[in-house]
């Protein structure tokens, strides 16, 4: 399965599943990252440690470990 970290810059994808533990999952949901939400990868920090994505109109920074827990599929 593809996760968010596998995506390239500028790629637009759809969330298929959140594999995060409870707290983080609730947090992601409150940011609008839930099933079928559309995401776009905007930028990467050095060595892809942290990435910046776009959810709706909001920009969000995520660490690579968190990005890995978001399963995505192509639109």
């Amino acid at each position: 399965m593809k996760n968010l970290l596998d995506c390239d810059r500028g790629e637009k994808v759809k969330v298929s599943k959140l594999n995060a533990e409870y707290d983080l999952k609730q947090r992601l949901i409150s940011f609008g990252i839930m099933k079928d939400a559309e995401l776009e990868v905007l930028a990467e920090a050095p060595r892809k440690k942290t990435i910046e994505i776009k959810v709706g109109k909001m920009r969000l920074a995520l660490r690579s470990q968190e990005a890995e827990q978001i399963e995505v599929k192509e639109i």
Binding site: L24, L28, T50, E52, L60, A61, L62, Q65, E66
Partner: peptide
């Protein structure tokens, strides 16, 4: 353990 990092980037 490390805590997750998720942060909004304002305009």
């Amino acid at each position: 353990v490390d805590e997750p990092f998720v942060m909004e980037m304002p305009k």
